[in-house]
Amino acid sequence: MKKLEIGIIGGAGYTAGELIRLLLQHPKTNINFIYSTSNAGNKIYKVHQDLIGDTEISFTSEINSEVDLLFLCLGHGNSTSFLANNTFSKKTKIIDLSNDFRLVADKNFEGKEFVYGLPETQREAIQKANYIANPGCFATALQLAILPLAANKLLSNDIHINAVTGATGAGTSLSNTTHFTWRDNNFSHYKAFTHQHLGEIYQTVNQLQSDFDSEINFVPNRGNFSRGIFATVYTHYNGTIEDAKKSYKNFYKEAAFTVVSDEEVHLKQVVNTNKCLIHLMKHDNKLLITSSIDNLLKGASGQAVQNMNLMYGFEETEGLQLKATYF
Results as ranks from 00 to 15, higher is better:
residue 189 H to G: 01
residue 190 Y to T: 14
residue 190 Y to G: 15
residue 190 Y to F: 15
residue 190 Y to D: 14
residue 191 K to E: 12
residue 191 K to C: 04
residue 191 K to F: 02
residue 191 K to R: 10
residue 192 A to N: 12
residue 192 A to I: 10
residue 193 F to P: 01
residue 193 F to M: 14
residue 194 T to W: 10
residue 194 T to D: 10
residue 194 T to G: 01
residue 194 T to K: 14
residue 194 T to P: 00
residue 195 H to M: 12
residue 195 H to E: 14
residue 196 Q to D: 15
residue 196 Q to G: 13
residue 196 Q to F: 11
residue 196 Q to E: 15
residue 196 Q to A: 15
residue 197 H to R: 03
residue 197 H to C: 13
residue 197 H to I: 11
residue 197 H to P: 00
residue 198 L to M: 09
residue 198 L to A: 05
residue 198 L to T: 03
residue 198 L to E: 10
residue 198 L to I: 03
residue 198 L to H: 02
residue 198 L to P: 05
residue 199 G to V: 04
residue 199 G to C: 04
residue 199 G to Y: 05
residue 199 G to A: 07
residue 200 E to K: 06
residue 200 E to H: 09
residue 200 E to G: 07
residue 200 E to I: 08
residue 201 I to N: 11
residue 201 I to R: 06
residue 201 I to F: 05
residue 201 I to V: 12
residue 202 Y to Q: 05
residue 202 Y to G: 08
residue 203 Q to H: 10
residue 203 Q to K: 08
residue 203 Q to P: 06
residue 203 Q to M: 13
residue 204 T to E: 14
residue 204 T to R: 14
residue 204 T to G: 05
residue 204 T to K: 13
residue 204 T to N: 14
residue 205 V to L: 05
residue 205 V to P: 04
residue 205 V to F: 09
residue 205 V to D: 04
residue 206 N to F: 08
residue 206 N to K: 13
residue 206 N to E: 13
residue 206 N to R: 01
residue 206 N to D: 07
residue 206 N to M: 07
residue 208 L to R: 03
residue 208 L to E: 10
residue 208 L to N: 04
residue 208 L to Q: 10
residue 208 L to M: 11
residue 209 Q to V: 06
residue 209 Q to C: 03
residue 209 Q to P: 07
residue 210 S to K: 01
residue 210 S to C: 00
residue 210 S to M: 02
residue 210 S to V: 01
residue 210 S to F: 00
residue 210 S to N: 02
residue 210 S to W: 01
residue 210 S to D: 08
residue 211 D to I: 00
residue 211 D to E: 05
residue 211 D to Q: 00
residue 211 D to Y: 00
residue 211 D to P: 00
residue 212 F to R: 02
residue 212 F to K: 02
residue 212 F to A: 04
residue 212 F to E: 03
residue 212 F to L: 06
residue 212 F to T: 02
residue 213 D to K: 12
residue 213 D to S: 06
residue 213 D to T: 09
residue 213 D to A: 05
residue 213 D to N: 08
residue 214 S to F: 03
residue 214 S to W: 04
residue 214 S to H: 09
residue 215 E to P: 05
residue 215 E to R: 07
residue 215 E to N: 11
residue 215 E to Y: 04
residue 215 E to V: 05
residue 216 I to N: 00
residue 216 I to F: 00
residue 216 I to G: 03
residue 216 I to S: 00
residue 217 N to F: 10
residue 217 N to M: 03
residue 217 N to I: 10
residue 217 N to T: 01
residue 218 F to H: 01
residue 218 F to Y: 04
residue 218 F to E: 03
residue 218 F to P: 02
residue 219 V to K: 09
residue 220 P to R: 07
residue 220 P to Y: 04
residue 220 P to E: 03
residue 220 P to A: 11
residue 220 P to N: 08
residue 221 N to S: 15
residue 221 N to R: 14
residue 221 N to L: 12
residue 221 N to M: 15
residue 221 N to Q: 15
residue 221 N to V: 14
residue 222 R to N: 15
residue 222 R to V: 12
residue 222 R to W: 10
residue 223 G to N: 09
residue 223 G to Q: 06
residue 223 G to Y: 06
residue 223 G to E: 05
residue 224 N to T: 11
residue 224 N to F: 06
residue 224 N to C: 13
residue 224 N to P: 06
residue 224 N to K: 04
residue 225 F to L: 08
residue 226 S to V: 04
residue 226 S to I: 12
residue 226 S to G: 02
residue 226 S to L: 02
residue 226 S to C: 07
